[in-house]
């Protein structure tokens, strides 16, 4: 019998809201959105954590510019804090070394991280999800009571994949906060129609910010970007009203 699932509920009991930034497709800005969202929430005074569950493509440590992230060992793993955000990722342990994992390994690693991480009191735990409908999505649904923020872009391919993603979330009775379109060019898109079709909120469009890349690796600079301001006005506002 695996003892770890038995303690996960206890570990997460002092977290008011868990926000899983997902969407199904890779390369649509889930990692930068989850990182900037956590920075924006912490900057607004909320106790915030960021959990990177994209084990095979973890990048939030690069976006944050996080160094020496090995957690403290005090009756569990205590995450380090970066710009007010408690941070946990597989990269805290892998020293930036490539870590190929199969499904069973992914499930085991998620279960272990959830069982040993001592988050303490949090207003928000933001999760950076990997692309796809695989183990991580299903484990997140099963092990944590998460609210999913479904990301899209104006691309028809992305919207089609997001549709399947929403279908799985619906079938699993997972909570969906809404649809957020990234890399928008300010034109009407299929993302709004997608949200309307499933009767879920369309949170809005985040315009492509050509200066965002320059701020990657510097949390202070990220907070000053137009991208961060748009995340604050659209997503953070929605979360506060929930």
């Amino acid at each position: 019998m695996d003892p770890r699932p038995g303690i996960i509920k206890e570990r997460l009991k002092s977290i008011k809201q868990t926000i899983a930034v997902s969407g199904g497709k890779g390369g649509i800005g889930k990692s930068v959105t989850s990182t900037v969202l956590s920075l924006v929430l912490a900057d607004a005074g909320y106790k915030t954590g960021l959990l990177d569950l994209d084990f095979c493509g973890a990048s939030t440590q690069t976006i944050l510019g996080a160094k020496n992230t090995f957690p403290k060992e005090e009756n569990g793993a205590v995450p380090i804090t970066i710009n007010g955000v408690k941070f946990m990722s597989i990269t805290c342990f892998t020293q930036e070394t490539a870590t190929p994992m199969r499904g069973t390994d992914i499930t085991n690693a998620i279960t272990e991280l959830l069982a040993i991480t001592l988050w303490g009191d949090l207003d928000f735990l933001v999760i950076d999800m990997p692309p796809g409908l695989g183990d991580t999505l299903l484990d997140t649904i099963n092990l944590m009571k998460s609210n999913f923020l479904v990301m899209t872009t104006p691309s028809k391919t992305t919207v089609e994949i997001a549709k399947k993603h929403i279908e799985v979330l619906r079938q699993s009775n997972a909570q969906i906060i809404g649809v957020l379109e990234n890399m928008s060019r300010g034109e009407p898109s299929a993302s709004r129609e997608l949200a309307e079709k499933f009767d879920i909120p369309f949170i809005g469009q985040i315009n492509f910010d050509p200066k965002l890349e320059d701020a990657v690796g510097n949390a202070e600079k990220l907070l000053e970007t137009r991208f961060a301001k748009e995340i604050k006005s659209r997503v953070a506002k929605t979360l506060k009203s929930l």
């Binding site: 060992e73 342990f93 892998t94 020293q95 870590t99 994992m101 390994d105 991280l113």
Partner: peptide, 14 residues
């Protein structure tokens, strides 16, 4: 590295 595997055994893949 041993300490990292101690926290999350799947890190052994790295």
């Amino acid at each position: 590295k041993v300490e990292s595997i101690h926290f999350v055994p799947e890190v052994s893949h790295a």
